[in-house]
Amino acid sequence: MRFRGFGGFAASTLVAGAILWSFMTTDVEFSRLLSAGPRIAEFLGRMFPPDPTVMREIMKGGAETLRIAILGSLGAVVLSAPLGILASETMVSPPLYRTVRTLLAFIRAIPLILVAMLMVGAVGLGPLPGIIAVAFHATGMLAKFYAEAIDGVSRAPIAALESAGAGPLARLRHAIWPQMAPVIARDTIFRFELNLRESLILGIVGAGGIGFYIQTYVRSFQYDKAASVTLAVIVMVVAIEAINVALRRRFA
């Protein structure tokens, strides 16, 4: 695609200006840039061979990350159920669901790592701030998904069951729930996968989990140990992805 006319000219000037500005105001010395390559190579060299003796720490940190993801997700589900209803067009009035949706958009806009730092400040180090941060951050997305699941329910079968004499609970159980449940299950699993992946690095800011060991080993120059933990994190991410692909196939 080619840029055309004044708009195109303005856009390219803006991009060029932004790049120039970044170069001029950041202290990027050409000599340092040249030596960066060998330095990185040397750094990577010090990571090899990865130190396998940290298996215990990996298991401990990995289990903690898993716990943070599970409990954080649980918290998000508990928060998202009422917020999802309050953000649904079919359940509440426009002023209310618009307000709640705006609130959820704000929550989504705050990066998890930032929430985690704030929570560490508020409740101290350890998995607890991680759990709270995950629950808070994930609710921004999950409540929105739940609201969409509620709004996607078709009304006609509900009216049909009412016409047959079914009470409100029976209608919820047999007309609303069957339409909503698969959507909610799929969205919740999707969000859990994101939570697990994102909480791997929470330890870097002191909010618990396997990331704590990466930070500790890098700070104490034990790069071979940091390498092992990093490899473990990569393996976990790939495993999560593989499980997710398998699950998606089941819900397709």
């Binding site: 047959a164 004499g165 079914a166 009470g167 029976a170 159980r173 047999h174 339409q179």
Partner: peptide, 24 residues
């Protein structure tokens, strides 16, 4: 109810004739 089975849909016709607990 599109995602339910044929039998479940036909049983839904009986919900008004069941006890509330059974219907639920």
């Amino acid at each position: 109810v599109e995602r339910s089975t044929v039998l479940r849909n036909v049983l839904n016709g009986r919900l008004g004739r069941m006890s509330p607990l059974r219907a639920l």
